[in-house]
Computed example of a mutant assay.
Amino acid sequence: MKKWTGTIRFYNQKKKYGFIKYLYDDKEIFFHISDVYSGDKEIYKGCVVTFLTSEDQNTKRIKATNITIVADGNVETVKKLDKHITRIIEVAESIQPNRLTILTGSNGNGKSFIRKLMNSKMGEKFPDRNAKHLVTEISMQKRTDVNNPLMGSGFGFTFFDNPQYPTSISTYNLIDRLLYSCVDSENKRDRSYIIIDEPEIGMADESQLGIALFLKSRLSEILEDSLGLMIITHSKFVVRELKDKADFFYTDYDMTADEWLERKIIHTDFEDLRIQSMDLMRRLNDWLK
């Protein structure tokens, strides 16, 4: 059932009913306070809500149900979120198999969401394949914790770091071994789409450049023996070394790799980031329902 978005155009607090105007349409729909989510009873004129529609059993007219306030009810915030979600979906739809994709963007702006979409996207591209083995993710999140194995989600490979190695060596070893395992299959039907998530985490500039050059040297082999490669990164070294061989996407808005490398850096307000990330995830859920 489709979830709609609208603003409270009118609400009679005494009689507990009102009308919702659709956010991107001139239509409006009746609602009663009993159909508002229990935690959102304090609705007000102009606030933004999501809702479902159904036929009222008594009047037989269509009414709004399952009404929930979104993004603190601010219209401009919701429209900004919708514009950004449109951008995220546009990026996800543009990613093609059998190519190198570089994905970057501000924290909390949808990179992880795109990453999670890749399994279903590859499933559409390769319907004859077992979806469980379509995507292998190489994540750097726990690479230096000897108690936490780093796992490729597609094949389930597990490798443990040696704590005597510095971060850069651990990263290199893990990426090298996982890539070798991913692309060394004799059965081409076992090939997967490979995602390397932020290989530069915790690295000095010299090591970031080293990882970038290592990936560049293996690129032809990886693309030949896989369903494609995505590198999610914030590293200028990775982008600079691989941009000429890659489809580049910046999740915040449309920008070329060269423009991204030369962009002006604005500091992060972490309280704003926390609110923005929570609002974006909630709004993404609205879009997906």
Rank of each mutant, 00 (worst) to 15 (best):
D40G: 01
E42T: 03
E42K: 06
Y44E: 09
Y44L: 04
G46I: 05
C47A: 00
C47K: 00
V48D: 07
V48G: 04
V49M: 01
V49K: 00
T50N: 02
T50Y: 00
T53L: 11
T53V: 09
S54F: 15
E55G: 05
E55Q: 10
E55H: 05
Q57W: 13
Q57R: 14
T59G: 11
R61F: 06
R61L: 05
I62F: 06
K63M: 05
A64N: 13
N66I: 01
I67H: 00
I69L: 06
I69P: 01
V70C: 10
V70R: 14
G73T: 04
N74Y: 13
N74A: 08
N74E: 13
V75C: 03
V75Q: 03
V78R: 00
K79Y: 07
K80C: 11
L81H: 14
L81N: 14
D82I: 06
D82Y: 12
K83A: 09
H84F: 12
H84W: 14
R87K: 15
R87V: 12
R87H: 15
A92K: 00
S94L: 12
Q96V: 11
N98K: 13
N98D: 15
R99W: 06
R99S: 08
T101M: 06
I102H: 08
L103E: 14
S106K: 15
N107S: 07
G108F: 09
G108M: 08
N109C: 03
G110K: 02
G110W: 05
K111N: 13
K111T: 13
I114F: 10
L117H: 14
M118G: 01
M118L: 11
M118C: 04
S120G: 04
G123P: 01
K125C: 13
K125V: 14
K125W: 15
F126G: 02
F126Q: 04
N130C: 01
K132G: 06
K132H: 09
L134D: 00
V135E: 12
V135A: 07
T136E: 09
T136N: 14
T136P: 12
T136A: 11
T136V: 08
T136H: 12
E137T: 03
E137C: 04
E137D: 12
E137Y: 03
I138Y: 07
S139K: 10
S139G: 12
M140A: 15
K142M: 08
K142C: 07
R143V: 08
R143A: 05
D145L: 00
D145C: 00
N147W: 08
N148P: 05
L150C: 09
L150R: 03
L150M: 11
G152T: 12
S153Q: 15
G154R: 01
F155A: 09
F155M: 10
F155V: 11
F155P: 07
G156D: 15
F157I: 06
F159Q: 10
F160M: 14
F160P: 06
D161I: 02
N162K: 01
P163S: 02
P163L: 02
Q164K: 05
Q164G: 04
Y165Q: 12
P166Y: 10
P166I: 09
T167G: 06
T167A: 09
S168M: 03
S168L: 03
S170N: 12
D176E: 08
D176V: 02
R177Y: 11
L178N: 15
S181N: 15
C182T: 09
C182V: 13
D184P: 13
N187A: 09
K188W: 12
K188Y: 14
